[in-house]
Design a protein around this nucleic acid. Structure first.
Lengths: 205, 205, 205, 205
DNA sequence: ACGTAAGCGAGACGGTACGTCGCGTCTTACC
DNA sequence: GGTAAGACGCGACGTACCGTCTCGCTTACGT
């Protein structure tokens, strides 16, 4: 397999899609995702509007697929790391690192996209990815979570949102610390917060 | 004061605006805020479309104003409480309580509105209100915040997002605990998380 | 009669109606009758829009009534002249004279009103008045008309339109001759043209 | 030339425009041009309202362009006739004939359009075309006009309006005579009236 | 002169049409 | 087969006027 001449391998196709994606990035930064129209995109991408529709369902489809690719990439990186010798003091998950690197590469795009001018569906999907990561983390070193009196869903939602908040802060303040440092800090935050959320085990409902 | 005959006192005006607001609530729950059109709203509110535009700029304006009112109400409640004798063990801020009660009263609306079918601007404004609350809290009992090595903005963003996450969980799971309990829990979470975020005071950048 | 206390005698009523009429005149000159709205009129007349509707059906009603008044005035003048000693060489019908004087008094209004920015219904009514005049003229000194091979209607339409054309020329060129001279010329034109229209009595259809 | 693939050659375009034009004709006859709305037109033409706006600025644009085409056609016919051997007794200008034929083909439309339910701008443009014709005529066989004591503009306005009056009479009475006869009569009228207008050279102002 | 019926200002409201914009589908011709 | 060009149906937008309708205030009138 993989040697068949696919439509997706067509030079023109790749060129068109790449142009469209870049146009969406640029325009979103310029005027906010909401205000971007397919006509805008086509014009900026120097592609006919009907060509856009040949490749994407709508503007949401462009960013949805992009997010999927990023997520797939992160997953691949994470998978590749499994079984690797654990590094010392501060361990940086390869998946998270890849994700953050991609985000930094398109910092302004993500900042807008996850903000008030953005796409709620995009933000939601992004949050889901984050939640999934934490769910796995909790499952892995789950003793703490198990001991908590709070539902896992709640813990996950709490930490995922918080993480996204921190990430947004990072984006909106010009990424003041390195991606690596951010990964470490987030990791620490996560774990501590996890402990915290379940922390004070006062008698509940 | 307050005895002048204002336009806003007009019975018809109040009726129209109330109907519109209710229509927006209902329709948002039914099909998601994004999918709601002004025509929809007018039809459901049994009001002419032009009447809608006489009172609101667009559908966003309706929810924006609503949020402002809720926020104003909460602020009033909070102000009224100042100087009251502190209750015993678990203190529930009156402002927060009022806010949560209003949210519970329109639980399904808020659930949709803050989710993937919602309005990013609404969610953003909501988050801002939450952040403002925490900023005040930090300013009041500020010793902890001051001792933290992390920027206040970051702490605030982190906790505000986390709180919203918890709130969403609460909404999406049918409000399993009472508003009062939620207020208490959120308060505890806030304080603990605040300590946590600044927690491990390792030397930072 | 005529001593009853009518609504129409109320000072306020007369004042409002007068203001409205003047506003219509001014605005029509400024932007063409078509472009004038009732709101425009009310604003210019310094009268509430609902007051406008108390007195007139719509903007057409204003000019329609005005034309009726002018026409009534002309008729009165004409009637008053009946039985008067015929003046010498050039006889000027009093009705026509009154009409032309009124028109000159509002020259710019009539110019616009009968032109491409005007009201077709107004122009039509105006033409009908003119046609009526000629029909009477033909009926009076009818021997010529009778001898003509052309239908009276056609003759009347032909001359009425022609007269209006001349009148428009007069208005559009700044009324280069006096009203009296115009009345005389039009009269001459009418009679001559009348003869002419029926003139060459070649065998017809 | 003329073999390039133009937008206007598109079958769909021609079809849409033709349908719209016909709808305007029909609706104008039915309810008067003033009362016709773009929605009416689109519905009748079985075309979407936005398609209407893709081709025309507004309803006036439709009739304006139509008139231009008619005028262009007449001009072409007139030009083609230049240099032809003059026929005998009654010469019928080819341009005028074409114009009258077109009018007869849409008699009811023109009747309404030039009447009280019509469009003053349309009537005005129509009159201008007529005036242009007479201006040319006067310029050609100009000895008479030159000898007149009246301004050419006045003569032209007078005759053009008169002609239109006769034409309207013809339309409103069911076109009692043939187009050819009408053309001949109008021609005779014109010349005679021309002589008449300048006729009685009494001392003027 | 004065009490009252009217005119009047203010403006909400239901309607209808406007002209614009963006969407997603489609056809046709080119390459 | 991908692409450009662009017509088309659809439907929402926000605006502009329309004509009708309360609802109080004020003002000129007629006794």
């Amino acid at each position: 397999m993989a040697h068949k001449s696919q439509t997706k391998d067509d030079v023109r196709v790749r060129r068109s899609q790449q142009r469209v994606r870049q146009a969406v990035f640029d325009l979103t930064v310029e005027k906010g995702f909401t205000a971007v129209t397919v006509s805008d995109i086509a014009a900026r991408a120097q592609v006919n509007r009907s060509t856009f529709y040949r490749h994407f369902l709508d503007k949401h489809d462009v960013v949805r697929r992009y997010l999927d690719e990023v997520q797939a990439l992160a997953a691949r990186r994470a998978a590749a790391q499994v079984g690797q010798p654990r590094p010392g003091a501060e361990h940086i998950p390869a998946g998270l690192l890849a994700l953050l690197q991609e985000i930094q590469g398109h910092a302004r795009f993500f900042k807008v996209m996850l903000g008030k001018q953005g796409d709620p569906a995009f933000a939601h999907r992004f949050r889901q990815i984050t939640e999934k990561r934490y769910r796995l983390l909790f499952a892995a070193g789950g003793q703490q979570a198990a001991s908590s009196s709070l539902p896992v869903d709640l813990q996950v939602a709490y930490i995922a949102h918080a993480t996204l908040g921190a990430l947004l802060w990072w984006l909106e303040h010009g990424q003041p610390i390195s991606v690596e440092q951010l990964a470490i800090d987030l990791g620490r935050l996560n774990l501590t917060a996890a402990g915290m959320v379940m922390g004070p085990p006062g008698p509940r409902h």
